[in-house]
Design a protein around this nucleic acid. Sequence first.
DNA 1: AAATCGGGGCA
DNA 2: TGCCCAGATTT
Length: 347
Amino acid sequence: MSEKLFSQQLLAWFDQHGRKNLPWQQPATPYRVWLSEVMLQQTQVSTVIPYFQRFVVRFPDIRSLAEASTDEVLQYWAGLGYYARGRNLHKAAVIMAQQHNAAIPENFDALLALPGIGRSTAGAIMALAFQHRYPILDGNVKRVLCRFTAEPDWPGQKNIETALWQLAESLLPERRINAYIQAQMDLGATVCTRSKPDCHCCPLQTNCLGRQTGKPEHYPVRKKKPALPERHCRWLIYRQSEKILLEKRPEKGIWGGMWSFPEINIDMPMDAILARHAVDDMIDLTPIRHTFTHFRLQIIPLLIDINQHDQIETNDNQQWVTITDSLSLALPAPVNKLIQKLNRGVT
DNA sequence: AAATCGGGGCA
DNA sequence: TGCCCAGATTT
C-alpha cells in the first residue's frame, strides 16, 4: 500500500473516533503539550488528567514553573510516580526561562537537549504543538507499526528500532500532522491495544499484516530472554530396605537448610563413587531440570540400592528416613518430586 | 510473576 | 554506541 493511504485512513478514522477534547488539547499550547507528554510517559491518560488540571492551575506557564522550588513541583507530582520526570520537568523549565525566553523552543535539537525530553517526546512536541513534520515512536505507535508489518523481531533490537523510526517517518502526511500524530496514539490506546485488539474497528485492517496472520496480539514479539547458564550436579539416592539417606544442606546457598540427597560434583568418575562401597545396583534415573532466576540446574540422580551388609558412612548432617517420614521434612520441590517417583517405582 | 515503558546514565 | 536501570502499572 502507499504511505499516503495509511495516513488518509488513519486521519479519516481520527475525524470520527479520535480524542479531541483532552485537557491539553484545548488549547494545545506548546507548554501544555510538553507538560502532558512528560506526564504521559509511562502513565495512562485517565490517571494523568486530574494531575494535569491541578498542575496548570498552579503553574500556568514556564516562568511560574521555573520560579517554583523543586519541592513544590514534586508536591504537585506526588502520586504520579517516576519522580525523576518531575525533577527533570523543573530543570527544563529553569533552562527555558534562562535560555529560551521562557518559551518552549520550536526546534527539534533544542528540545532534545532539555532534560526529560528524548526523541519521541521531542517529536510529539514538534508535531502537536508546532505542526512540524516529525514522527514519534512511543509504545502505542511501536505496537501499531509492529502489527501492521507483522514485524518478526523484537522491536527493542537496534536495527528494528531504526527501521521503525524510518517507517514512522515515511508514513507522515504532508498536512494535518498534529491530527495524524494524535490519531496514531489514539489508535494504539483504544483499538490496537496490547491484548484483545479490536481489529474490526481499525481503519488499517485491510492492509494490516499482523491481522492477516490471525494473531495480531502476537505483535510486537517479546524479547527473547538470554539463555540461562546451566549447571549440573549429581544426587546420590542411597536406598536400603524402605529407607533413603537424606542430607541437610548448608544454611547458605540454594535450598539453605533444607533436606536433599547427598550431592556430588558431576565430574566425579563413576569408579570413584563405586569405590566408596560395595553396592547391589546403581541406576541412572531420568535427569531433572530445575530453573532458578539466574541459572538452570540439571540434576542427574543415581539410585544406589544397598544390601544389608553394605556399610555407608554417615555424618551428623545425614539421616536415614522412611519415605513416609521424609515427607514431613522441608524438601525442595525437585527432591519431593524425586521421592514421589521412587515411591511409585518409576525410574 | 513477568512484561512493559521513554529517558537517563554509564562504560 | 550499546546496555541496563528506575519505578510503577498491567497482564
